[in-house]
């Protein structure tokens, strides 16, 4: 599941907002991550069928398939059952975080995020 040494950690960012994806991409790529992007949950699901990744970062509110739906589908299969998945949330309330955990997320990133904290969170869960 882990990448070979010296291989950059691969991250898939899933957000329907291009600017949010750009922000994530900027922060992660400048810290040495290999970043891929998907427009929404459905696109992410399709991309993940044929591609592999180390960490998934997903927004919750998205058209077609939202973040919780994406996590549910990924956890149901065996290939991504143990994949670290972080959700992007604007809510810092503990019950919202708890909900993310219950939905199967590994962790969360509160928007707006501090790039250093984002990178730390991804490193924290990257197997």
């Amino acid at each position: 599941m882990s990448t070979a040494p010296n291989q950059p950690t691969r991250v898939l960012t899933v957000d329907d907002s291009a600017s949010m994806r750009a922000l994530l991409n900027h922060a992660l790529a400048s810290s040495g991550f290999e970043v891929h992007q998907a427009d929404d949950g459905q696109a992410a699901l399709e991309w993940l069928v044929v591609n592999d990744v180390d960490v998934v970062i997903t927004d919750i509110n998205m058209p077609r398939l939202d973040g919780f739906g994406l996590i549910e589908r990924l956890r149901a299969g065996s290939r991504h059952a143990d994949r670290p998945i972080l959700v992007l949330t604007t809510e810092s309330a503990p019950e919202k975080k708890q909900r993310a955990r219950e939905a199967g997320a590994t962790g969360w990133i509160v928007k707006p995020f501090d790039p250093d904290k984002l990178v730390a969170a991804v490193r924290r869960v990257a197997h």
Binding site: M20, L23, N61
Partner: peptide, 19 residues
């Protein structure tokens, strides 16, 4: 309704990110 909500939510997220 969901689309309206998401539109406003999306603006809010970016507004926060850019201060």
């Amino acid at each position: 309704i969901n689309a309206i909500f998401r539109a406003v939510h999306s603006i809010k997220g970016g507004a926060g990110a850019f201060g």
